[in-house]
Design a protein around this nucleic acid. Structure first.
Lengths: 202, 202
DNA sequence: CCCTTTATGTAGCGATCGATACAGAGAGGA
DNA sequence: TCCTCTCTGTATCGATCGCTACATAAAGGG
């Protein structure tokens, strides 16, 4: 191994720069010139290291899922109940999507809304559907375990909370501060099916 | 008036065709070639009648607000209470955003998410903020009238329901059927502040 | 040393972007 | 009829798009 001239830039750091570009401007509005400028390399280096724009974006998305997007899967896996898991997902989304250290909102939700390429759009849509399915399965598991009222519709609840997360992402993009989005998360949890005694009674 | 050669196409119909293009593909991904193709005219006719792409889009947005987007303002003005108004807005959004007669979702929410032009993005953001302000004012009016518990935060509630509407729009774009989104609307209404006796008690 | 291999910078490919120059066509006013 | 005015179709404009050919540079293997 190690034959040929070694590359003079850090591949992971270049990938991070590309992530920020796609995150901020979306797939279509991010140009190769913008990418190479942000990554500090020239087009041939980009194509040699990452294939083309489409494959670079795919790698960015994959990396994003394993870093910035990991909080949701972690909450769903770690929390003891579906309710606690989803509440944590919503609150962490409010924090994550407004983090000033990176562009606001969720890359998966916003980067390929109107990207011109039906393939890329479909791929991101599939990612969103997969995330929703994880939420649904977590709810269905609690329903089977008897932690939720019989008749609860896991798919309906999952759609509602997926919509809430997407709404939080859009609001974050529009500049709504973290505290407000945490309130949104709290309000969304009032839609959770009542298990024991009715609300307002202690 | 009426001097010079009259135009040979219907301006309103061409505007409708342009609306569908922007609605489906977003601002950036809609090209002049795509527009002229859908409108059945040539570029000089487009520029003579509508100025440029930016002004054509502005006119499309204005027209959209007065037609497809009118249902929200109408519900907020007509319904007797803020609660009834917002419930109607959500349910009508579920219907409107999945109408097979036009592209899914809301043009104001999705058409300029990542459009490359900061000006256009800011303009659409302002539109969304204005819609949210109308919701907030309607809630504040009910709060002043004593129809809501003291301590209710109109801005927090308005942000939550704006986020819900945006989530419904995104889900509609992803192909979620109308019935599911109506269920999302119902679930979102469970976040409404309890006024009288607690829930679950009849 | 030379050969192979891979990365780099320059410079530019064909295609498409938004936007127009230009000449002809079709209307009203004199 | 002739002039003026506006719209229409053709045929582009310069700029930018994603992408790459080409020569050179820097490494390892013989």
């Amino acid at each position: 191994m190690g034959k040929g001239r070694p590359r003079t830039f850090d591949r992971d750091e270049a990938l991070d720069r590309a992530t920020m570009e796609f995150w901020r401007h979306g797939y279509e509005a991010t140009s190769i010139a913008g990418l190479t400028g942000a990554m500090g390399i020239n087009p041939p280096s980009l194509y040699a290291a990452f294939g083309d724009k489409r494959r670079l974006f795919a790698e960015v998305v994959e990396r994003y899922q394993r870093s910035y997007g990991e909080f949701a899967a972690r909450a769903l896996a770690e929390e003891p109940t579906a309710r606690a898991a989803i509440e944590r997902v919503l609150r962490e989304a409010a924090v994550e999507y407004t983090d000033p250290a990176h562009p606001w909102g969720c890359l998966i939700i916003t980067a390929a809304v109107n990207c011109g390429s039906p393939d890329v759009e479909a791929e991101m849509r599939a990612q969103r559907e997969a995330s929703k399915a994880v939420i649904r399965d977590r709810i269905a598991a609690d329903l089977d375990a008897g932690h939720l009222p019989t008749g609860t519709d896991p798919d309906a609840l999952a759609t509602f909370y997926a919509a809430t997360i997407q709404g939080i992402s859009t609001q974050a993009r529009d500049g709504v501060p973290r505290e407000r989005l945490e309130t949104v998360a709290d309000l969304a949890m009032r839609a959770w099916p009542a298990t024991g005694q009715p609300r307002g009674v202690r």
